[in-house]
Design a protein around this nucleic acid. Structure first.
Length: 339
DNA sequence: CGGACCGA
DNA sequence: TCGGTCCGG
């Protein structure tokens, strides 16, 4: 997903403590996908309530949000709106991959290949409208702000970071740097481990920050140049030039100055070039997003999680108490800085 | 994913 | 107290 710029960005290892007292925009879909693929039983089945509704995403959002707050991080969740018109091709490609996975899964089930069943089922994630509705409902009960982006969530989150409404963006996607994010926080988990897709294996991935300004300075480039680089590599909205990765793209842009010139020399074309560039530079955004904490609706949290979705009250209770504690501290902090 | 639990 | 395993819903 998104363009791979890992070879050329400036990144620094961090710890969760480095995010203390920061408000950060969280790319909601990005994190929900992570929860859906990793919060599973060893055989690949996600957590479900007794009616068979998947609950991995609720579990993930609930517990993770509270541990973030306990570390002093204030999240603002950003939800995707309507995909950018030119994303259709990417979405189509993803749909084809998903269909292949589904048919492979059926075959594996017929053959009784346990390993394959687990591997494939963890790769097939469904996010549906009900899930999104319930996550927003849960966030409201928890007093956590969220923003509905008009189009891409990364675009909204990155724009907010650019305007200093938040001090960073939590997302795995490098595209954020193209949309104007200043700090992109990746691998933000407590233990710094991540499940390898489909296998019961963990790799250590330490939390890191990508520094936009430092990246641009090191490369001697502007954000516009970086967008040109990404377009050559290929983004969610276009196919790149064959055999051109991030490093090669940087060299090409350095040598020829602009993507238009590179394409002319190489006798290549990228469809809708200007429209894509404009979208990266000026995506439609919600200009007055909510970024403040609100009151905790304790009883509604229990109703949602425990009554409706079979979460254990004993397990949820201490988290709700910590949530209320953190909210009190935050409002105290706001009063202190006001006076 | 992240916490609880357990044996060294 | 550390590292592995188990479990949540």
């Amino acid at each position: 997903m998104g363009v791979d710029l890992s070879d050329i960005v400036v990144k620094r290892k961090i710890t969760i403590k480095d995010l203390a007292n920061m408000t950060v925009a969280v790319d909601a879909y990005n994190i929900i996908y992570q929860f859906l693929s990793s919060i599973r039983q060893p055989d690949g089945t996600p957590l479900m309530d007794r009616s068979g509704n998947v609950t991995s995403h609720l579990s993930g959002i609930f517990y993770r949000t509270i541990t973030m707050l306990e570390s002093g991080i204030k999240p603002v969740y950003v939800f995707d709106g309507k995909p950018f018109r030119l994303k259709n091709r990417t979405l189509e490609e993803r749909r084809i991959v998903k269909e292949k996975n589904i048919s492979d899964l059926e075959k594996a089930r017929e053959e009784g290949d346990v390993e394959k069943i687990r591997s494939l089922s963890s790769r097939i994630n469904y996010i549906n409208a009900d899930m999104i509705r319930e996550i927003k409902e849960l966030l409201t009960c928890m007093g956590i702000p969220y923003v509905q982006a008009p189009t891409e969530g990364e675009a909204q989150a990155s724009w907010m970071n650019g305007k200093d409404m938040v001090q960073g963006v939590i997302s795995q996607d490098y595209d954020c740097i193209l949309f104007g994010a200043k700090q992109i926080y990746r691998n933000i988990t407590i233990y710094g481990r991540r499940k390898v897709s489909g296998k019961n294996i963990y790799i250590n991935v330490s939390p890191e920050v990508i520094e936009a300004a430092e990246t641009f300075r090191t490369l001697g480039m502007t954000r516009e140049n970086m967008i040109d680089v990404a377009l050559l590599v290929g983004t969610d909205f276009n196919t790149g030039i064959d055999r051109v990765g991030a490093r090669t793209a940087v060299k090409l842009i350095r040598k020829y100055g602009s993507i238009e010139e590179v394409l002319k020399v190489k006798n290549r074309e990228i469809e809708n070039l200007q429209e894509i560039k404009d979208f990266f530079m000026h995506p439609p955004v919600e200009e007055h997003p909510d970024t403040t904490l609100h009151e905790v609706k304790r009883e509604e949290i229990f109703e949602m999680l425990c009554d409706r979705h079979d979460f254990s009250k004993d397990r949820v209770l201490p988290y709700v108490e910590n949530l209320e504690k953190v909210h009190k501290k935050a409002s105290q902090f706001n009063l202190d800085s006001f006076f």
